[in-house]
Simulated assay, not measured.
Amino acid sequence: MCRVERDPSVLYLAAARSCGQRTAYVERPREWGTVDKPEQREPLDAYHTTGMDDLADQLVADNRVADGPRPGAW
């Protein structure tokens, strides 16, 4: 499960973790426009990434997904 906001998704993320899902936080440094947004690592998230490509790279490196498209994928 990948979160895109800190609250109230925290409850959904806790529920996902309790079911064995691994969670990721994807940084969005320009969410607040030109003002730098502080990004904080959530210790319970399995991944902290700078974007979806970075998340994909981390998942492949962690052997959580196979290289290439899965059958039935878009």
Rank of each mutant, 00 (worst) to 15 (best):
Leu59Val: 08
Leu11Phe: 11
Trp74Val: 15
Pro69Gly: 02
Cys19Thr: 09
Glu27Phe: 07
Glu39Ile: 14
Ala56Asn: 08
Ala73Gly: 06
Gly51Met: 05
Arg6Trp: 07
Tyr12Val: 03
Val10Arg: 14
Trp74Ala: 14
Leu55Asp: 02
Gly68Ile: 06
Met52Asp: 00
Arg28His: 13
Glu31Ile: 10
Ala56His: 13
Gly72Pro: 00
Arg28Ser: 09
Asp54Ala: 13
Tyr12Thr: 09
Leu59Phe: 11
Glu42Gln: 11
Leu13Val: 01
Glu27Gln: 15
Ala15Ser: 04
Thr50Asn: 03
Arg17Asp: 00
Gln58Ser: 04
Ala66Trp: 11
Asp7His: 10
Val26Gly: 04
Cys19Arg: 15
Met52Asn: 08
Glu27Ile: 04
His48Trp: 05
Thr34Ile: 13
Tyr12Gly: 13
Gly20Gln: 07
Glu5Val: 03
Asp53Val: 12
Val65Asp: 06
Ala24Gly: 06
Pro71Ala: 10
Arg30Phe: 14
Gly68Ala: 04
Pro8Thr: 02
Gly20Thr: 01
Leu55Trp: 09
Met52Arg: 03
Ala61Ser: 13
Ala14Thr: 04
Leu55Met: 08
Lys37Tyr: 10
Arg17Gln: 09
Asp54Trp: 00
Ala61Asn: 12
Leu44Tyr: 04
Ala16Gly: 09
His48Met: 01
Ala56Lys: 12
Arg70Gln: 07
Glu5Gln: 13
Ala14Met: 11
Asp36Tyr: 03
Glu5Lys: 05
Cys19Glu: 14
Ala14Phe: 01
Glu31Pro: 00
Arg64Gly: 02
Arg17Val: 04
Tyr47Trp: 15
Arg64Gln: 15
Met1Val: 06
Asp36Arg: 14
Gly72Met: 01
Gln40His: 09
Leu44Val: 04
Glu42Met: 08
Ala61Glu: 08
Asp45Met: 02
Ala73His: 02
Glu42Cys: 12
Ala73Ile: 04
Asp54Lys: 00
Glu31Leu: 14
Ala66Glu: 13
Glu39Ala: 11
Glu39Gly: 02
Arg17Cys: 02
Gly33Asn: 06
Gly20Cys: 05
Ala46Met: 11
Asn63Arg: 15
Ser18Met: 00
Tyr25Leu: 07
Pro8Cys: 01
